[in-house]
């Protein structure tokens, strides 16, 4: 079962709405309130793991968006930053 659209809408807005990610990281309850998330949805967002997000039906690609947004190490791994001039990439 797919997640409610407001759940997906919140994730989709993370890369579009200036300041939203910061608010989600520092005052998550206020963000959850503004989107009307349920307790289960809030718990899944807070955990932000594939298992938790799958449990509420978050789209697989949007799961990646949320995990990349909230996990700098993961974002560093899934990037071209390591491919420096030595690799012939600019």
């Amino acid at each position: 079962m797919a997640a409610r659209y407001v759940v997906h809408q919140l994730i989709q807005n993370l890369f579009k709405e200036p300041g939203l990610l910061e608010r989600l990281n520092h005052a998550p309850d206020a963000v959850y309130d503004s989107y009307g998330l349920t307790a289960a949805e809030r718990a899944a967002f807070s955990e932000a793991s594939p298992a938790a997000l799958t449990s509420i039906g978050v789209h697989p690609i949007l799961q990646m968006h949320l995990m990349l947004a909230r996990n700098p190490q993961m974002a560093e791994m899934i990037s071209v930053k390591s491919y420096t001039a030595e690799w012939g990439l600019s």
């Binding site: 560093e76 791994m77 899934i78 990037s79 071209v80 390591s82 491919y83 690799w87 012939g88 990439l89």
Partner: peptide
């Protein structure tokens, strides 16, 4: 159309990059 960190998979990553080149 993706690359991830080459750490631990350097030879395969290089093969991929050279292939796309």
């Amino acid at each position: 159309h993706i690359l991830m960190s080459p750490a631990g998979v350097e030879d395969r990553a290089r093969h991929v990059v050279n292939g796309i080149k």
